[in-house]
Design a binder for these strands. Structure first.
Length: 139
DNA sequence: GCCAACGTTGGC
DNA sequence: GCCAACGTTGGC
């Protein structure tokens, strides 16, 4: 089981839209960055990820699950670009802001904090647990 | 709205 | 294969 983080601008694709898709999920298309694509290629069914709103909100708002492994991105004919499908699992009780991540010494190495431009990122298991704690998601 | 960081493109 | 120019992302 691996953990990830998916970044999206609210105006492009929001958490509300993702939730509205239900178990059908949605293709995480439109990624045109090799690093992000490579992360998606290494995802497995059942992997979990955070859903992060960039720009205005700058906070992790929910948890998603990979429901289809890497396949060609249907929004382009360019065969360089693949993507996965994800579905919303649940919203976080309290969103975890970028500022909170930056303040927490244990999250100092989180990709979110250090590489602001990468739209699909790996998250370590430790980081995953810490963020869940910050979110009050103590399941 | 600005700008830093970073990725990509294309000329040589 | 290098590197300058350019475009985009995203935090501030």
């Amino acid at each position: 089981m691996n953990f990830w983080l998916f970044k999206s601008e609210v105006s492009t694709w929001s958490w509300d839209q993702q939730v509205a898709r239900g178990d059908a999920g949605e293709e995480w298309d439109g990624v045109r960055n090799y690093q992000a694509r490579n992360h998606m290629r290494s995802m497995k069914l059942g992997d979990l990820g955070f859903f992060y709103h960039s720009q205005k909100e700058k906070e992790i708002v929910g948890i998603v699950e990979v429901i289809a492994e890497s396949h060609p991105d249907s929004t382009t004919d360019d065969d360089r670009w693949d993507c996965v499908d994800i579905k919303a699992v649940r919203s976080l009780p309290k969103p975890v802001t970028l500022a909170m991540c930056k303040e927490n010494p244990r999250l100092a190495d989180m990709v979110l904090v250090n590489n602001t431009r990468l739209s699909v990122q790996p998250v370590t298991e430790d980081e995953w647990q810490i963020v869940l704690e910050l979110a009050g998601d103590t399941d």
